[in-house]
Amino acid sequence: MAVDLRLKNRTDQVFSDYEEIFVGNSIVFEGFLLPHNKKARDTQIVRFVSGGRRYLTYDLDRDGVFVRGVIRYGALAESDPESIEVSIAKIEAAIGRAPRKIPQTRAVNDAQIDKIRFFHANGMSQRAIATEMDIHYMTVWKIINKKGAYAE
């Protein structure tokens, strides 16, 4: 019977006495496999510990049910500081810790906004306007109802 270490399993369902630490771009881990998981393949164990994330290499030593290993990931990408700030603002706004500071952008310019409002005032449907202007119908709705970046 094949062992199936699913990613949705908790660590205590796979290991007893498990520890991991992050060193640079690597995870160093060790633990004792529970008896029903001792026939798991090395690749299954690495996939479980890594959470299914892509890694470059791994080393795994096994002694019966004792497992010790290192999973190495790629170098951390250079990040744009502005994108980091935007990401942090999104996370904080989502958990309610800070007001939303994400800059709102527009899909259309002011001349197009005037044209959309003119079409709507003359009885054209929102979907027909969206098709005519080659934009999403929700953008038309936001413009007409003055929501989001189109609020005045």
Rank of each mutant, 00 (worst) to 15 (best):
S79F: 06
Y73M: 11
D61E: 14
I71C: 04
G69I: 04
D63E: 13
R68M: 03
G51P: 15
V67Y: 08
R47L: 08
I45P: 11
T57A: 01
V70F: 05
R47M: 08
S50L: 07
G51V: 13
Y73G: 08
R62P: 05
V67G: 10
T57D: 06
G74Q: 06
L60K: 14
D61Q: 08
G74K: 08
L76Q: 08
Q44N: 00
L56R: 10
F48R: 01
L60D: 04
Y55N: 01
G52C: 03
I45M: 06
D61F: 07
G74M: 09
D59M: 08
Y55L: 06
Y58S: 05
D63P: 00
Y55S: 00
S79V: 15
F66G: 04
D63F: 02
S79G: 05
V49G: 03
D61K: 09
E78I: 11
T57R: 13
R68W: 00
F66Y: 14
R53M: 13
V46D: 00
F48E: 03
Y58V: 00
G64V: 00
A77Y: 04
D63V: 06
Q44A: 12
L76C: 02
V49C: 06
Y58E: 02
A75Y: 09
Y58W: 14
V46A: 03
V70C: 02
I71K: 03
L60N: 11
R62C: 08
F66D: 08
V67H: 07
R54F: 12
D61S: 15
Y58T: 01
F48P: 09
V49E: 04
R62K: 15
S79Q: 15
I45D: 03
S50H: 03
F66T: 08
A77I: 10
S79I: 07
V70L: 13
V67I: 14
S79N: 01
Q44S: 01
E78N: 09
L76N: 12
Q44G: 13
G52V: 12
V67E: 06
L60Y: 13
L76H: 05
R68I: 03
R47D: 11
R47T: 11
A75N: 10
L76F: 09
Y73K: 02
D63A: 03
V70N: 07
S79A: 05
V65L: 09
R53W: 00
V46F: 13
V67P: 13
R72T: 13
T57Q: 10
R68Y: 09
R54Y: 08
